[in-house]
């Protein structure tokens, strides 16, 4: 890891894209990393193939999304992946991320989802206990609420349940409005994340006023070159059981 305290945003984003591509490969049952068709492969200068830690920020950021494909497809998590996950958490412990009080609870919930997902592969992570989810239970506008839910999208996986999920089930229309708002603002990252919740609700049989399949396809075609976004749409599709190319 570099020591100079310059912003590593570009390097870390590239790491997220690499890890997302690998997860996508697992989900789509393809050997190796998937780079969605038509997207430029990650700039090789950004990834040092000899740095075993280069992907750790990506693993730490994606959390449960990096491992969800193994859960969804029922494939084992390779030992090196499990070890890397643990190292990512030890390199970036939850209490050092420096999130503001307004957002720290989001990280706590995401880490909870990651820990719960890794439990399935026999890996224990020491993460703080999340609260009661009051932040998504307050009365607020559907606009702000749906963005919060986007930030919690890595919780939207089968097998995870809690107060955040209960809030999602109670507010299917707000999620649907939120995803349409994000689509029209052409904020496809946010749209894909909210769609994750709609997919989970669809799998649970909760009625939604939206047809998800064309929306996910649209995000993939219009959403720019983010592998992370494609991963979100593919997880969503897998969760609803809508599988197509």
């Amino acid at each position: 890891m570099p020591f100079a305290d310059t912003s590593p945003h570009e390097d870390y984003t590239a790491a997220v894209e690499r890890v997302a591509g690998r997860a996508l490969g697992v989900l789509m049952d393809v050997e190796g990393t998937v780079v969605p068709a038509g997207f430029a492969p990650a700039d090789p200068r950004l990834a040092d193939p000899h740095d075993p830690d280069a992907d750790l920020p990506g693993l730490r950021v994606l959390g449960s999304d990096a491992f969800a494909p193994h859960v969804l497809r029922g494939t084992p998590l390779p030992a090196d992946q499990a070890e890397a996950a643990a190292r990512a958490f030890s390199l970036f412990p939850p209490d050092t991320l420096g999130a503001s009080p307004e957002t720290a609870w989001i990280i706590t919930w995401r880490d909870w989802a990651t820990a719960r997902t890794l439990t399935r592969f026999g890996l224990a992570l020491d993460v703080p206990l999340p609260g009661d989810g009051a932040q998504v239970a307050d009365a607020t506008t559907w606009q702000a609420w749906s963005v919060r839910m986007a930030q919690l999208s890595s919780l939207a996986l089968p097998g995870l349940d809690g107060p955040i999920h209960a809030a999602a089930r109670r507010n299917a229309d707000s999620l649907a409005r939120g995803v349409v708002r994000a689509m029209l603002r052409r904020d496809y990252r946010t749209a894909a994340r909210i769609a994750r919740w709609l997919a989970l609700l669809a799998a649970d049989g909760v009625d939604s006023p939206l047809e998800l399949d064309p929306l996910l396809r649209h995000v993939r075609l219009f959403g720019g070159g983010s592998t992370r976004t494609v991963l979100d749409t593919r997880i969503a599709q897998h969760v609803t059981g809508l599988e197509e190319s």
């Binding site: 606009q143 649907a176 409005r177 349409v180 708002r181 029209l184 603002r185 006023p209």
Partner: peptide
Amino acid sequence: DYLRVWLPVWVDVWAE
């Protein structure tokens, strides 16, 4: 029924 769900979204998007 359609407008009941989506009209507030359009108002929000174009008001912004």
